[in-house]
Amino acid sequence: MSIKIANISKSYKKVNALKNISFEVKSGELFGLIGPDGAGKTTLFRILTTLLIANEGVASVAGFDVITDYKSIRKNVGYMPGKFSLYQDLTVEENLDFFATIFGTTIEENYDLIKDIYIQIEPFKNRRAGKLSGGMKQKLALCCALIHKPKVLFLDEPTTGVDPVSRKEFWEMLKRLQQKGITILVSTPYMDEAALCDRIALIQGGKILEIDTPAAIVKHYLKPIYNVSANNMYQLVNSLKAYEYNHSVYPFGEFVHYTDRRSDFNPAELKVYLESKKLSNITIEKTVATIEDTFMELAK
């Protein structure tokens, strides 16, 4: 096991940020921590990277205890915090050189590991980090977190606020790093990124809702789920919410995902109801649950 977390709790004054969290991440695994702001993701990252001490529970990273062996952990992990934390007034190259030196290595020694990513920002190597675009900052931060060849990489919301193209590229980079044997714990509020992880933990309000592979989590969603569409989205959502048998009504792109409370639900009946609400072009088709459906059902 690369990361072991057992019964970890942490509270700040009145807020219980983490409530009795336990899970393990296997060596070489790409593990996702999926949840919204305030779920406790950053607190957990800070405990695992030895920047914060838990109130209760034990945890180890790369075989080292977070309390008694914190110095070994710091040598063996890379951490990319959610907030950009490099030196804004050092250049790209100076930042990278700085982090390499701190860890007693050189850019040349581990260049192989960062090459794919670094060549994308190399044309700007003499630019100050503070003057880079969001996407380039993110790539530089990743290089700096990798330059000492860590065993475990912690990435706290690396793609928040990043456009879909850059997000896709970032995940392709993560996959390549995983192939080089690095264990990765990554957090994200984007549910579509969950599908790209080997296993995920859904987290909300300091509690783990569920841990499994993305495919298995989706299978745990037992209710039949329907794509409903009509001529007017706003009225459709309102009408479905007013329907006495509804279990859940969530807009999903061009459709509304609808589940019914009854086991003998008949879509034709719902269609008649929606027509009575003066909606037209109604379609009701069975669909499959996504991670987001599962998350919302569990968080309800």
């Binding site: 949840g35 919204p36 779920a39 509020p189 706003y234 969530y250 807009p251 998350f295 919302m296 309800k300």
Partner: peptide
């Protein structure tokens, strides 16, 4: 809607529709 949970994100969009 950056960073909010999926349920709240949808409630937010209901305000937009309204």
């Amino acid at each position: 809607t950056g960073g909010v949970d999926p349920i709240t994100r949808r409630q937010f969009w209901e305000l937009i529709y309204k």
